[in-house]
Design a protein around this nucleic acid. Structure first.
Lengths: 205, 205
DNA sequence: ATAATAAAAGAACACTTGTTCTTATAGATA
DNA sequence: TATCTATAAGAACAAGTGTTCTTTTATTAT
């Protein structure tokens, strides 16, 4: 009786709307995607679409929340343990980041984020807290442990974290931009590993 | 008689259209800015606007070309000379980058670039060549000289250049995002210098 | 003063936009 | 079988879009 968000109970049409809208929004942005275009691609009339969603914004918000749904899940203990081993901590973190970069779903969500970043304040703040701060937190915690154990040269952990994450982000942005025009990204696939190697050489004591 | 692009001979209205459109485009993007909104802000009717520009796209392209009009002007000799001194090369380059980051005009052009990056293929390609490749070229040339003179540890100059520029870009993006919501950026003003210091410590021999 | 020119206003166009009605259709429930 | 419910279609709306006419106004050159 009460609305259930399980995929099982949800109508197939609503699921399809979500999927179609996700593709269109992450390709043409909010303004560039019309309700009619979504409906047409789903195979129904615009009016029928309103049986599933209140309005256009509700569709967008429904999708947009997925952008930050793949947070970095590193427990305090996990960080401690990995950081004690030094480089493997950076490798694990980077591999996770790389995976998200090349994951089809994460990729289109990242594109959507980039498209709407300068148009949507809510998204901007989420970008800062979820994308930046969250990463800085995990990384600086790891770097702090490394410093305590004399694995890396002493410095400001947050500053080092900033240095580390910025390159990861830059690679991801480049991959996203190039893939948008279906251009080759081969030369960037190993960039993540190169970054870890270079960075570790830079900070290790 | 022939059309002259000097500011002197250009009508004040056309100049104002350029200015107004620039502000609006860099705030709401191409789709988010209507011809009527531009005209209203200028203080004329939409129809009058067409006496100065062929159509909306012409206004946009006129402004968009300014995005990449502040290229890094480092001559071959200048790079050679500075790179021989090591760190000052990075400092000079970074100060230039920092200046562009906080320059009002460059700032709004950068915002426009970010807004339209995922919507405009032309801009995407220009971003890659003008923003990325151009910087990599200058930097890697400098790093190459440094390696030859044993100022920094031997490695791939382009890879080091990539590492260096990515952080600069990330800082710039953050500044732009925060400033959009008129949030403080004090904590980021010294980030550029910190980056140079950290990076130099990382690569110097 | 007169003619020529540039720039403005005003009205209208064809089209797209998000949204809201009413009506039809099918499947499940009673 | 009759009723209810969910979903669909169809038509229409008011508002906004880029653009193009024609007409008016003011300035400049003759």
């Amino acid at each position: 009786m009460p609305e259930n968000r399980d995929i099982k109970t949800e109508s197939p049409t609503k699921t399809k709307i979500r999927k179609v809208a996700s593709t269109l929004f992450s390709q043409y942005g909010y303004k560039g995607t019309s309700v009619r275009k979504i409906a047409a691609e789903v195979g129904i009339r615009e009016s029928a679409l309103y049986n599933h969603f209140k309005n256009k914004e509700e569709i967008f918000l429904d999708i947009a929340q997925e952008i930050f749904s793949s947070p970095f899940h590193f427990s305090h203990d996990e960080i401690q343990e990995l950081a004690l081993r030094g480089k493997p901590f950076l490798q694990k973190f980077t591999m996770h980041y790389k995976m998200l970069t090349f994951d089809k779903s994460s990729e289109s969500m990242f594109r959507l984020l980039m498209i709407e970043l300068m148009q949507n304040q809510e998204l901007r703040e989420q970008f800062m807290s979820q994308f930046h701060d969250a990463n800085i937190k995990v990384l600086s915690e790891g770097f702090f442990v490394m410093m305590q154990n004399n694995l890396i040269r002493s410095s400001d952990p947050m500053m080092i974290a900033y240095e580390f994450i910025s390159t990861l982000f830059y690679i991801r942005l480049q991959v996203t931009v190039l893939k948008f025009d279906t251009k080759p990204v081969n030369h960037l696939t190993t960039q993540f590993e190169k970054h870890v190697d270079f960075f570790w050489e830079s900070i290790k004591v």
